[in-house]
């Protein structure tokens, strides 16, 4: 049933999420930002805070499968939604293929941007509407800044993961 209740600024609002596949309920303030709730309240510190204004992409998570900036989203806006963070990518102790590709290609230096880079890359590879050519991939990844400048290896990792996932032909028309 849809909630129509008014919540005062001081209220604790119950938000029900499916977080990395697990049902979770969090009590949050109306102005609580998803990024802060993930890190400070739910203990998932893999998602990073960089600029806190949607410009750097360090906070990228998946909301209903789409890459979004967790710093520009209220936790209360996520009622009933499935959220995946970097902690939710590995399965059964095995890294996600994109995580493995980042390791194989040395696609980071300090690593602070890597969770966001990887979350964007995973969403990109799963979105078959976005072409897989290098120019398009660069643009599609432009919301994730890397101050170390590991872009060449990040791009190589993504295109390698694309090949492994879709094969040569799928990579061309994906």
């Amino acid at each position: 049933m849809m909630e129509t209740t008014e919540h005062s600024p001081e209220a604790a609002v119950s938000v029900h999420l499916t977080l990395n596949g697990v049902p979770v309920t969090a009590e949050v303030s109306p102005n609580a930002i998803l990024l802060d709730v993930l890190r400070e309240q739910l203990g998932l510190t893999g998602t990073k805070k960089g600029c806190d204004h949607g410009q750097c992409g360090a906070c990228t998570v998946h909301v209903e499968g789409r890459a979004m900036n967790a710093c520009l989203r209220l936790a209360v806006m996520c009622e009933g939604q499935a959220i995946t963070t970097i902690e939710g990518l590995a399965e059964g102790g095995r890294l996600h293929p994109v995580q493995q590709a980042f390791l194989d290609h040395d696609a980071f230096q300090c690593g602070y941007c890597s969770p966001g880079q990887i979350m964007s890359a995973v969403a990109l590879l799963e979105d078959r509407r976005v072409p897989g050519d290098v120019t398009t991939v660069r643009e599609a990844m432009s919301g994730n800044l890397c101050r170390c400048g590991a872009y060449q290896n990040i791009l190589a990792a993504i295109q390698d993961a694309r090949l492994r996932r879709h094969g040569q032909e799928g990579g061309d028309d994906a």
Binding site: E3, T4, E6, H7, V13, P30, N31, I33, L74, V76
Partner: peptide, 15 residues
């Protein structure tokens, strides 16, 4: 960050 009240609208008219 400043605080604010919050409501979820369930119809255009009510919004």
């Amino acid at each position: 960050m400043r605080t604010f009240a919050f409501a979820r609208a369930d119809s255009v008219a009510r919004a």
